[in-house]
Design a protein around this nucleic acid. Sequence first.
RNA 1: GGGCGCGUAGCUCAAACGGAUAGAGCACCGGAUUUCUAAUCCGGUGGUUGCAGGUUCGAUUCCUGCCGCGCCUACCA
Length: 672
Amino acid sequence: MYRHLERRLSDAVRDFLRRAYSLELAAIVIEQPPKVELGEYALPLAFELAKKLRKAPRKIAEEIIAGVGTVEGFDKLEVAGAGYINARVNRAALASALAADHKPPAAIPSGKILVEHTSINPNKAAHIGHLRNAILGDTFVRLLRCAGREVDVQNYIDNTGVQVADVVVGFTHIEKKSRAEIEALARQPRFDYYCWDLYARVSQWYGEGKEKNKENLQVRAQTLHAIEDATSETAAIADLISTAVLRRHLETMDRLDIEYDFLPRESEILHLHFWDAAFTKLKDSGVLTFENEGKNKGCWVTRRAGTSSTTEVTDNTDDSEQISEDDQKVIVRSNGTVGYVGKDIAYHMWKFGLLGRDFAYRKFYRYPNRHDCWISSIPSDKDAEKDHPHFGDVAEIYNVIDARQSEAQNTVIEALRGLGHNQAADHYTHFSYEMVALTPRCAAELGYALSDEDKARSYIEVSGRKGFGVKADDLLDQLIASAKQEVDARHPQLPDAERLPIATQIAIGALRFFMLKYTKNSVIAFDFKDALSFEGETGPYAQYAVVRATSIFKKAAIDSETFCRDVADNVSPGDFAQFLIGEAANAIWELWLAAAKTSYIIDQCIATTEPAYLAKHAFQLAQLFNAFYHLHPILSETDEKRKQFLLATVAVVRRELIRVLAVMGIAVPPVM
RNA sequence: GGGCGCGUAGCUCAAACGGAUAGAGCACCGGAUUUCUAAUCCGGUGGUUGCAGGUUCGAUUCCUGCCGCGCCUACCA
């Protein structure tokens, strides 16, 4: 509703500017006044126009107000301060529409969107950094779907890379385990934890710094090479390990209500020769050039993103430009093997339907809600299914990948551009976010010995290679245990079977909110104290507000949803006007206004790829509600009309808060 | 060296295109519960927005320089 009124206001103003001054403004800035007393919208455009029109801002503001006239849904426009135009909405009308859940039609762009997130190397347990990625990605998917978009969720699996090779080396060369023994281990409940420790041991086994163990490193190279040959024993072992770990990742994410539609794997990109198809096109278009000399002699290279070809080479008679060595990114190594950026280019051509090849598909994982997650396969696979959903070939993509990979991501985008696929490049968004690190205190708590240098840092980077980090399942377990203690203390009368799911919902609420409340490019310095907090700006705070709202209706023996739906029978527009207009009503109106903003906030989140705004919105709504709750006893209210109005307030806020939390992937327990 | 990002209260973070008195949470201090759940609410303490310039009616926001920090800059992924 808020969004709709804003648009109407800006249309009216734009229309007037065109008529009166023949001015065409690209965007009309509309913000919110510092206090609701001043109105619901503020336009500072008179300041901007003062120069152009050579008039005082206040004078211009008055002209605009007079010229625009009445706008549907608004009571009036007025000049404020040095020249702001403040708009006051018709509170009763907005409240009635919101209560009735009236949704003005919005244009939804067509075309499918592909969101890729999680993409953890399947060689060890997921840690808190991966949680941030998955929670950001999943929330963004929910945002898009909430806005009416069709979305496919993909989780890219690098099952043939060095990281998997390293764990294979650990099993075969350090532990000297047979394939059957590894198979047995892989059936153990937390096989990913086993791999976590083993992976750290392998890294040590290779040696550190200058004291690298050449022989051991050679084993790694051989193993990596063997994995690429699908028929080898090594490849079979790698496959069984990576598949088992992948399954663990899906289980971990499922605990947080995060699901995927498709898992494209590098092994298929390799075996189905996606690269060959891409390579030809890249060579033909000149995106790749062959180096005849220098340090990259014998390699196919492209220009690294962010480097410019500004050098004024005058004697460049060649039509293909020369890239200085420092600006080259090797795509095909001199031994003919392809690096991961190359595979990524091919993969992204597939995403946009530009490659002319497709995977085979088979079902891999079924969620408790019977939703199927598919995995890439090859046509000769007996489990591959002809009848599968159509993946890829989408209009827009979002890749949730941490900021460290932005150069690689941009190189892929530039390659698409170089191939002439500007449309695709324009709809390729690297959803970049910063890493989760540990505070020195947290690292010390985990038992890691820190150097003095590390102790002085504000945060320390997590390292899977060193086995340094907080595992996702451990954190979840701790959160659940901690929430369980609280629930046990508060609701001793409830059976344990009911207390555990409540604690779990609270734990997930706390975790998801924690990961979403920071803006993307802020490094999260992880600390158990903050993450395990259930008070203040947290998920449980928002959940608690809903529980309180629910309990009012429970006590009154009224069904909240029904009440909400039939609100017009209980509260007339006249009643809304009576209780919402005037100085005394400002605080409650502020709550209504916040509740009206949900779709506006969702639009903002999508446009800026920033889910943190949603967390902020949820918190603000909960905060306003808690203050309202404290100030207005409802069930004891003797004025029946006012009581109905207060109940409507609770019902609407409850409905909106539940929706907002659902978009964040947070469910609300029945009691807390 | 080059590229990207960051620097705001004791701590962790906000502040949509440049806008009205820079806001929250935590911590600390003081209050509120015979009431619809105190995982709550109210009040207080706490700021030269890293430094210096510039643009502007107006700068935490944009530009330049400097200081400090992080990441990227592999024939790793």
